[in-house]
């Protein structure tokens, strides 16, 4: 995984609330056994028409979306299915952070494990972001701050261990494996 310290990007805005993982990655694409090329299915049913042509007014099909690393979404993004294919798709598309006022638990967990920052902000900040698509924002993971073009600096919470892993570009599996002795001890104690 690439280390993340700072992200500076324009935002893509999807104001819908409760964007579930079935929208982010419809179930028919889950028969894949790899992660390769998954971005092409991202938001497939909002992004393409019946014939598979891009729907021009969908935000991800607009030229402004190209190269954007920050997705701003209405409250409670990522609800529903635990499919990790949802954050894989967002990451593969180029996103490195998702901002909302609430982010569903499993999606948040899955995102943290894939270099996609789930950033929870207060309703007022979210309202501003929703009202200003394309705003140039800066996310500083060292300081846990989101800086808006107005100069406003917003602190965001992030699980401390996941943050360290993201800053250093290491995954958590190595840490869990290093707990082998404690795990063996626990198993022995219970047996």
């Amino acid at each position: 995984m690439e280390p993340i310290t700072r992200i500076q990007s324009r935002t893509v805005v999807m104001p819908s609330t409760n964007i579930d993982t079935d929208q982010i990655m419809p179930a028919r694409f889950l028969t894949t056994t790899t992660r390769a090329g998954i971005a092409k299915h991202l938001f497939a049913d909002w992004r393409y028409d019946r014939d598979g042509n891009p729907i021009a007014d969908f935000v991800l099909n607009q030229p402004e979306a190209i190269g954007c690393q920050v997705l701003v979404a209405g409250r409670n993004i990522g609800c529903g299915s635990s499919r990790e294919h949802a954050p894989w798709g967002l990451y593969d598309f180029g996103f490195r952070a998702v901002i909302s006022s609430e982010i569903a638990d499993i999606f948040k967990n899955n995102s943290l494990k894939n270099g996609l920052l789930p950033i929870v902000v207060d309703e007022t900040t979210l309202e501003w972001l929703l009202a200003n698509p394309g705003a140039l924002v800066t996310i500083d993971l060292e300081r846990c701050t989101l800086t808006l073009p107005t100069g406003a600096v917003v602190q965001f919470p992030i699980e401390s261990f996941a943050r360290v892993c993201l800053l250093n570009g290491v995954d958590e599996t190595g840490y869990l494996l290093s707990q082998n002795d404690a795990i063996s001890q626990f198993e022995k104690h219970r047996a």
Binding site: R83, I106, N109, E172, T173
Partner: peptide, 9 residues
Amino acid sequence: GIGTTEVGQ
């Protein structure tokens, strides 16, 4: 429920 990375873990 957990994600696939956690399944691996």
